[in-house]
Design a protein around this nucleic acid. Structure first.
Length: 266
DNA sequence: CGCAGCGCCTGAAGGC
DNA sequence: TGCCTTCAGGCGCTGC
């Protein structure tokens, strides 16, 4: 599932391929999740940014093409003679003849085109701080978590306390900070550890080009390597890398969750 | 306004 | 071998 490190890796791969290119035609799957893509025809890509898990393709008319990869989304730039994939949900012809494609088997992804003000898209307006932004501090994390009784892991996933975390990096950060995922309150020292752990696991994820468990691919079709560096996610039944206690898995607020019952106490 | 619950999707994997 | 069921889960929407 593409989270911040995966989207950031895609962003970095896409920039040299798309910046300066003009969309000369576009087509989509009939779902309204993808049809807005056609409104970019005739524009030129000025830059590619990211906000949380959203890819922001800045266009030369000051609008932005916003792409969320959902669960199974992939972005590719193919040669002119490449065969289209049956799971391509949106595709653009570029002025150099190549083809830009958004492949998304489960169709959990979506596309929007917005004007100058990105906040006009409610989902972007509601997003919490970027984890690498200086406004995201141990104090702000504690204060935001403290405001709600919702379980800490669920708050990390809701994109309002901080943007960009999904199930993999939530489990990793909580493990690293030694915080129980189902906790409904977190001490100041625990929030400080969690703040550092969030930044650390996301930084490591970016450095490793993302986590490829199944669908996630880089722009060139390659895999990331962070799946070989996971301490917690998917490690249920294995010994904890820190204390050797067998790691446990349980569904918490409808999300599969793995933690160490010894290191991560309530 | 906060939040719980539901629906969207389909391939993979497991059971019989 | 083949059919059926279950599972994975981010997010938009609805309604309390």
């Amino acid at each position: 599932m593409p989270e911040l490190p995966e989207v950031e890796t895609v962003r970095r791969g896409l920039r040299p391929l798309l910046i300066g290119r003009t969309f000369t035609s576009a087509g989509t799957h009939p779902s309204a999740k993808f049809t807005p893509a056609v409104h970019t025809v005739g524009t030129t890509v000025a830059d590619i940014d990211r906000r949380g898990k959203y890819l922001l393709v800045a266009l030369d008319d000051h609008r932005s093409l916003v792409i969320h990869l959902g669960m199974t989304g992939q972005l590719r730039v193919d040669p002119a003679d490449a065969l289209p994939d049956p799971y391509d949900r949106a595709w653009w012809t570029l002025d150099d003849g190549r083809r830009f494609a958004f492949r998304d088997v489960r169709r959990f992804g979506r596309i929007a085109v917005v004007g100058t003000d990105l906040r006009s898209l409610p989902t972007l307006a509601a997003l919490g701080p970027e984890p690498f932004d200086p406004v995201f501090t141990p104090q702000s994390l504690w204060a935001d978590l403290h405001r709600s009784q919702v379980r800490v892991k669920t708050q990390l996933l809701n994109q309002r306390v901080v943007a960009g975390i999904g199930n993999i990096y939530a489990d990793e950060a909580l493990w690293r900070a030694r915080v129980h995922p189902a906790s409904r309150s977190v001490s100041r020292p625990a929030a400080a550890r969690l703040h550092g752990a969030i930044i650390a696991v996301l930084t490591q994820g970016i450095e490793n080009g993302g986590t490829t468990l199944r669908d996630y691919r880089t722009v060139d079709g390659g895999s990331g390597s962070n799946q070989y560096r996971l301490d917690c996610y998917g490690q249920a039944g294995e010994p904890c890398p820190r204390c050797a206690t067998i790691m446990r898995r349980q569904v918490i607020d409808a999300r599969g969750t793995t933690w160490c019952p010894a290191c991560q106490r309530r």
